[in-house]
């Protein structure tokens, strides 16, 4: 009955853990943002999808209305998570670059070059 739920939860928790590892393993802000944003968003979507599958199973088994409510609310939460995480990551990256935290080990940094060309402030 709940094999799908277990698989979805397993994938989700694994990716959440991978996001935690990425936070410690990568060398600078930008690469850390890569790891944490993608892994935690993906993992959270999978654990929430497990909740949706569980609620739908219970709804078809019992026919109680509160399980449809759970499904709809979780789907709205997933959309809120998708939009707010991507935008938040973009905001953090932009503010980090503007406040002068440069990417480590970068082979090329066009943004800093263009700043210097325009005569803007660049650390």
């Amino acid at each position: 009955m709940s094999t799908a739920v277990i698989i979805l939860l397993g994938i989700g928790v694994a990716f959440n853990f991978l996001g935690t590892v990425a936070l410690y393993r990568f060398p600078d802000v930008y690469t850390r943002l890569h790891g944490t944003t993608k892994c935690t968003t993906f993992g959270s979507i999978f654990t929430s999808a497990a909740v949706v599958v569980f609620a739908l199973e219970r709804y078809f088994a019992t026919g109680e209305g509160r399980f449809t409510t759970l499904t709809v609310h979780v789907i709205i939460a997933i959309f809120a998570l998708l939009i707010s995480n991507a935008t938040g990551a973009h905001a953090i990256a932009r503010s980090a670059h503007r406040s002068g935290v440069m990417p480590k080990y970068a082979v090329v940094d066009r943004l800093a070059e263009d700043h210097r060309k325009k005569g803007g402030v660049s650390a």
């Binding site: 944003t37 959270s44 953090i92």
Partner: peptide, 17 residues
């Protein structure tokens, strides 16, 4: 400081999940 903000943001996502 941006490192700390990244950590806080990820903690928030995990708390929502």
């Amino acid at each position: 400081i941006p490192d700390r903000v990244v950590a806080l943001d990820s903690i928030n996502t995990l708390v929502i999940a």
